[in-house]
Design a protein around this nucleic acid. Structure first.
Length: 345
DNA sequence: CCCCATGCCTAGTCCCTGTT
DNA sequence: AACAGGGACTAGGCATGGGG
């Protein structure tokens, strides 16, 4: 009997039992696949499959195929339980590349992680089933990456200056002004630290940035390129003489301005919450993230252009007056594992 | 090269309202 | 009370690529 034959026998047993993927198998240990059996069976059954679509659709298609392969009925939806296949202590990932990400939980040493490699059109190229202990070896640093998420409280409610005054600390430190002559602005470089008396007030920033509304920029499938184009447009709207980017916070250092382009409702805020009172040392040792100014530009796009529809400008401290931070976990954390190049061989 | 920060956007769940 | 339908909410699911 080959491993595959054993696996096919288990599949029969599971069908016989009539269990779904959520049913515990503690009373039926003979119906639990070994990790080798899972691997052989999934390789056999998923060969030639195509899982295409946006990644979450692709993932769902794959999980449905795994249900069929293992002898389970396909549920209408996959409950948000950990693992997704509780009866078999199994999770399923579909990866075009090597960055495997596990959200909001530890690796379980005994869990089986099915990793399905697809190409850029979704053709299944390879299947591996690894146990948690094996994946744990690919976790070199133990680093968890986290993010906050938010959305606008009133989506589509147009352009808005959330509050028209900078924070007291910001005013004390940099003396932001409503009027700066164009020559001074043209002489400022985006990556230089803000200079006392050479910073626009949040009100003046807003007036200038309103010029972005209605503008179009070339669309790219790369969100980084899109972000950079907005960044350039913002520098231009402010009258800065040049464009430059250090990749550090905030995007336009000399004006203490962070810039975000949103084409979807969910704002990923990254590691630092805008209302954080952690120091923003690129601005000044005496300023905090919450003193900085945040531009959110809402755009719509087709395959050609991004059209900027409205903008919102807020100081960090007032950010969550206009935007709703996601409740629930508040901060989501993930472990990222780089799969070695020989993982599938 | 490799780590991990960042962004886009859907699936699954929750919640509300109306209906049987 | 039970159910259905729809909208709101958010937890992922993954790709990408900058920069140490």
């Amino acid at each position: 009997m080959s491993i595959l034959d054993d696996a096919l026998a288990i599949r029969e047993a599971i069908s016989e039992l009539g269990f779904d993927i959520y049913e515990p198998l503690t009373e039926h240990p003979e119906a639990v696949y070994t990790h080798q059996e899972l691997e052989e069976l999934l390789r056999h059954e998923l060969a030639g499959s195509v899982f295409a679509g946006p990644i979450r659709t692709r993932s769902k298609l794959a999980k449905e195929a795994v249900c069929r392969a293992l002898g389970y009925p396909v549920p209408a939806s996959f409950r948000r339980v950990k693992p997704r296949f509780p009866g078999q202590d199994l999770d399923v990932y579909v990866q075009q590349h090597d960055n495997l990400q596990v959200w909001n939980e530890e690796l379980s040493p005994t869990r089986r992680y099915a990793v399905i490699r697809v190409d850029d059109v979704g053709d299944v190229i390879a299947v591996r089933v690894a146990e948690g202990t094996e994946l744990a070896m690919f976790d070199r640093t133990g680093t968890l990456t986290s993010k906050y998420q938010a959305k606008r409280r009133n989506a589509n409610s147009g352009s808005k200056l959330v509050f028209d005054t900078d924070t007291p600390d910001f005013i004390a430190e940099l003396a932001p002004t409503d009027h700066l002559d164009e020559r001074t602005l043209r002489g400022l470089r985006p990556v230089d630290p803000p200079v006392h008396g050479k910073v626009l007030s949040v009100r003046a920033l807003y007036d200038r940035l309103l010029g972005l509304v209605g503008r179009e920029m070339e669309y790219s499938t790369s969100e980084r390129l899109r972000g950079e184009r907005l960044h350039r447009l913002a520098c231009e709207a402010l009258g800065l003489g040049s464009y430059a980017d250090t990749g550090k916070f905030p995007d336009i250092v000399c004006q203490a301005l962070e810039v975000k382009l949103q084409t979807s409702p969910t704002i990923d805020l990254g590691l630092v919450s805008p209302d954080s009172d952690g120091p923003a040392v690129t601005l000044s040792p005496r300023l905090r993230h919450s003193d900085a100014r945040y531009l959110v530009a809402y755009g719509a796009h087709d395959t050609e252009v991004v059209h900027i529809e409205h903008i919102v400008l807020s100081t960090g401290i007032d950010f969550f007056g206009e935007f709703q931070r996601f409740g629930g976990l508040v901060q989501n954390r993930k472990l990222q594992l780089r799969l070695p190049s020989n993982f599938f061989s």
